[in-house]
Nucleic acid binder design. Structure first.
Lengths: 210, 210
DNA sequence: CAAATTCTTGATCGGTCGATCAAAGCGCGG
DNA sequence: CCGCGCTTTGATCGACCGATCAAGAATTTG
């Protein structure tokens, strides 16, 4: 027994370390070239191991992809889950926007992978979209309808409101090249601040009731 | 001479027809699987011809891709070009949003291809982004700054305003699968109307001065 | 230390894809 | 009808890629 690390058994130390490296390399490569556009050689090279060794840990290319994607969904939905019906509506929405914007800044590879999957018709996570995702969105849309009836939120379509938050925040990760080309080589910190300020203003005044 | 059609000479009738079919098929395939993920066989099959025949009109796979992409940029930038400094700011912006939303509805393949190119780092159009695109955006940002000084537009960052328009409108084409999964199988017409109404409201109140 | 197990990799196989070529088909002017 | 140029395609080549295997290296275990 080697429970010295304190983590529950899930393969040897080497196994865990190598799986970790493979998943990280897979995220890097898949997020840039998509599933078909990526090769096992690329991923193995990025992970610093040989191709057969990678296939020793994941029998198929698709298994790496699914594992990378599987780690993603909770990260993706958690910020929306945090939206509380008891909070001040505009505060909750601004906070949600800010959290999503932070994720775009800190996890651009995850965002691009997600976008890539959507663009190709989401063949591998279509079930999750119609299930877990839709359930959560329906729930939060219901919360927003409550706010609208309270008169604490402008009467807008909750679904399209959520879509707009997804779109405006993910844009900074997915279209990073375009954003950089337009804004020039300014500091990333400044870009983030300006984007946050603009979105805060847009949603504050755009969604204020009355 | 066969100027009977009235179009200027640009290959025979057969050449023009086949190039057209190839470009349309290329758009269909490339927009769904990206450059590396698409095969000439797929494109040729979709165009209803053999692979060598396709390569008779375009010597390389990359030539098809570049031709498809080249037809795209003007379509992409025209709506922004139409924004007039003399107009009423909020009208101009609302009109821009609506035009972009129409394009997302009517040309989803073009939108997805563009998104795919961005996700992969835009290796083939990076020059256009830093050139033609940036020039136009700088020009319109300047127009918006004028509106802000006039007091006819809220003091927001013009660049991030434009980004948000791109993001919110393209989202309906690029993330179509997700939108459908969340909204269920409602009519496309209704979706479009609701999205237009939400965005009109968001930008009207979010950008109104004072 | 020795045996057993886990880990790593060079070599290789079958399949796919981009690209080429030669030959056959087709339309058009004489 | 003939001959010429434009168009189409079956066959094929080389490169790349996913996957397998057997053998060797490293690590763990007794």
């Amino acid at each position: 027994m080697n429970e010295t690390t304190g983590r529950r058994a899930c393969g040897t130390r080497i196994q865990r370390a190598n799986r970790e490296r493979i998943l990280d390399a897979g995220l890097e490569i898949f997020s840039r070239y998509g599933f078909k556009g990526s090769t096992i050689d690329q991923i193995a090279a990025k992970a610093g191991m040989s191709k057969p060794n990678l296939l020793y840990y994941f029998r198929r290319k698709g298994e790496v992809y699914d594992a990378v994607l599987g780690d993603l969904l909770s990260l993706w939905l958690d910020p929306l889950r945090e939206m509380r019906a008891e909070g001040e509506p505009l505060d909750e929405i601004r906070r949600y926007v800010f959290r999503k914007l932070e994720i775009s800044r800190d996890r651009p590879r995850e965002s691009r992978l997600f976008a890539n999957e959507m663009l190709t018709g989401a063949p591998r996570i279509h079930g999750l979209l119609a299930g877990e995702l839709k359930t959560l969105v329906d729930e939060k849309a219901s919360v927003m309808r409550g706010w609208i009836e309270n008169g604490t939120l402008a009467p807008v379509d909750p679904y399209h409101l959520i879509f707009s938050v997804w779109a405006t925040t993910q844009h900074y990760a997915d279209f990073d090249v375009q954003v950089r080309a337009v804004l020039g080589g300014g500091k990333e910190e400044e870009r983030f601040h300006d984007a946050a300020a603009f979105l805060a203003r847009l949603y504050t005044y755009g969604l204020a009731p009355g």
